[in-house]
């Protein structure tokens, strides 16, 4: 009789274990605790991204800590061979990984500045829920240019024109109150409206440009090459390369009556002077 009772008990226990139920929450968020329900006690396994937990649990509610569910993805909870899966979503944005290029750029150039942002939560999960990143670009003393870009699968990117004023431009990306800044040094672009004057200096001609500026009025950096060209029918063409110093380029050319003097920098041509020997 006792033997039969023991056998029945074992069969019932096995049947209970076989029908043990585990209920997982419909929704869970990475880095937040969650509760699952086990209809019988036993060993709980929780397998998921960054997680491989094994612990004994009693029947009833089982709390999974914020650390147990740190990472977004699919988790499988197993109790007594009964398994249920749950998807843990990324949490709210907490970090921005902002890549901005280049660090130095000429002013007033279209689509030369690029920025890409990965939106992450506090555990570095990519926040794939739709959102928006606000990009701003501007130099001190000027209203920044601003654009809101929707994220797609955790990424937002922008291509922007450089501003008209030289100087360190603040390039920022923000989501809510999370702001990340990068500095893009805007430098003067190619010279524009290049003009020179010439005067006799002994047996030579002293040529000198007016302050060399780009088309936005920014002085070009010192060291920019300016080429002075002297052309005569008798001697042909001779050139002198001079570097801009304190905004101005200077050179000496041999004084030859009837010479044509021109000035150029890069692809920009300046004014022309006919040297009459004065």
């Amino acid at each position: 009789m006792t033997k039969n009772f023991n056998t029945l008990f074992i069969i019932l226990a096995l049947a209970c274990a076989a029908y043990a139920q585990i209920t997982v929450p419909q929704q869970a968020t990475a880095g937040e605790s969650a509760t699952l329900t086990a209809s019988s006690g036993g060993t709980l396994y929780l397998i998921g991204p960054g997680t491989a937990i094994k612990r004994d649990v009693k029947s009833g509610e089982v709390t999974l800590s914020a650390d147990d569910l740190a990472y977004a993805g699919r988790y499988t909870a197993i109790v007594n061979g009964n398994a249920q899966s749950l998807y843990v979503s990324p949490a709210k944005p907490q970090k921005l990984s902002f890549m901005a290029r280049p660090s130095r750029v000429p002013v007033a150039q279209p689509n030369v500045i690029s920025g890409a942002v990965f939106v992450l939560d506090h555990n570095d999960n990519l926040v794939t829920q739709p959102g928006a990143v606000k990009f701003e670009l501007g130099v001190t003393g000027q209203a920044p240019v601003s654009q809101s870009v929707p994220t797609k699968d955790g990424i937002a990117y922008i291509r922007a024109a450089s501003g008209k004023r030289e100087g360190p431009a603040q390039f920022t990306a923000s989501v809510g109150d999370i702001v990340v800044r990068r500095i893009v040094q805007q430098v003067a672009s190619d010279p524009c409206n290049l003009r020179m004057k010439a005067q006799r200096s002994g047996n030579d001609i002293a040529v000198e440009t007016e302050p060399v500026r780009d088309c936005s009025g920014n002085p070009v950096p010192d060291g920019t090459i300016v080429t002075f060209i002297e052309t005569t029918n008798e001697h042909g063409k001779s050139t002198v390369d001079a570097r801009v110093k304190h905004g101005i380029a200077k050179a000496m050319l041999p004084a030859q009556p009837g010479a044509t003097l021109t000035v150029a920098s890069g692809v920009v041509l300046g004014n022309e002077i006919r040297w009459g020997g004065q």
Partner: peptide, 25 residues
């Protein structure tokens, strides 16, 4: 291939994987 960052240092892929998983104790 879903995204290639403008400066060329990051790439995003989307993958649909058929996989089996087994947990061993």
């Amino acid at each position: 291939f879903a995204f290639y960052s403008p400066e060329g240092t990051a790439i995003e892929l989307h993958d649909t994987v058929e996989l089996s998983q087994e947990t061993m104790d």
